[in-house]
């Protein structure tokens, strides 16, 4: 498989959250500030890439019956490493993500990619797959954060961008106040509550569905036969 194709799959056509619908817990729970979103996204990206490489390298020696247990141990190992690193170097992120960092162990994206991709493919494609899928996840988180933060608090990039008299700075310790677009008194706090998480993600999924349907219709005009065949196949699968 081509590298470009893998990236296209991870980011758009087979995006882990939007198309595969996995890893939803963290997507809704931590996307309240830009800092959280990007921190979580990068942590998952690193863990996913490392796990993909290790599992793919070991794929011939893992017995099929206990493969899930082996995957989980590998994943838990890397999650512990990242957890300890965050505690040591980015304590603000570790504190604000709380229990969701160790919970990356049970994030379906990592175990799903191990099961669906790495146990059949060589190391290099698995490495690229980890980066591509991790980026897809990060982008979705960032999109959620931008919407929720803007509607809920009226800011952009809280924690990462800092706008003060000295000008615009980029900080990595979560202390940035963000770029204020309107007063927080006008923000709908409910968007930052759990309710907002569910509904924002619902709307994001609906948007994805709309775009997928549009793309299918467009494809239908040029090649109606193939498309209709695909749709009936999908319905049969349901």
């Amino acid at each position: 498989m081509k590298i470009g194709e893998q990236f296209k799959e991870g980011l758009i056509t087979n995006n882990p959250v939007l198309i595969q619908n996995i890893g939803l817990c963290s997507t809704m729970a931590i996307t309240t500030t830009f800092f959280n979103g990007i921190g979580m996204g990068i942590s998952v990206l690193i863990i996913l890439t490392c796990c993909n490489v290790v599992i793919s390298a070991l794929r011939k020696s893992i017995p099929n019956d206990i493969r899930i247990a082996v995957f989980v141990v590998v994943i838990a190992g890397f999650v512990t490493i990242v957890d300890l690193l965050l505690k040591a170097y980015v304590p603000a992120l570790s504190k604000s993500l709380g229990v969701f960092i160790p919970l990356i162990v049970v994030n379906c994206i990592i175990i799903g990619r191990a099961e669906a991709f790495c146990q059949h493919e060589p190391v290099f494609p698995s490495f690229i797959d980890g980066i591509a899928q991790g980026l897809g996840y990060t982008l979705t988180l960032v999109a959620m954060c931008l919407v929720r933060e803007l509607l809920g608090n009226g800011t952009f990039g809280t924690g990462v961008f800092d706008l003060s008299e000295k000008g615009l700075r980029i900080v990595f310790d979560g202390s940035g106040s963000g770029i204020r677009l309107f007063d927080s008194a006008f923000g709908a706090t409910i968007v930052l509550m759990p309710v907002g998480g569910f509904i924002t993600l619902g709307c994001l999924f609906a948007l994805t569905n709309y775009l997928v349907n549009k793309a299918k219709e467009k494809a239908g005009k040029t090649d109606a036969g193939v498309c209709a065949c695909q749709i009936t196949n999908e319905e049969a699968a349901k």
């Binding site: 309710v195 619902g202 609906a206």
Partner: peptide
């Protein structure tokens, strides 16, 4: 139509969470 499946389920869950 775009809300079929997961999206409407999430919005429903959102209202329950409310």
């Amino acid at each position: 139509k775009s809300f079929e499946g997961f999206p409407i389920a999430l919005v429903t869950a959102g209202l329950l969470s409310l």
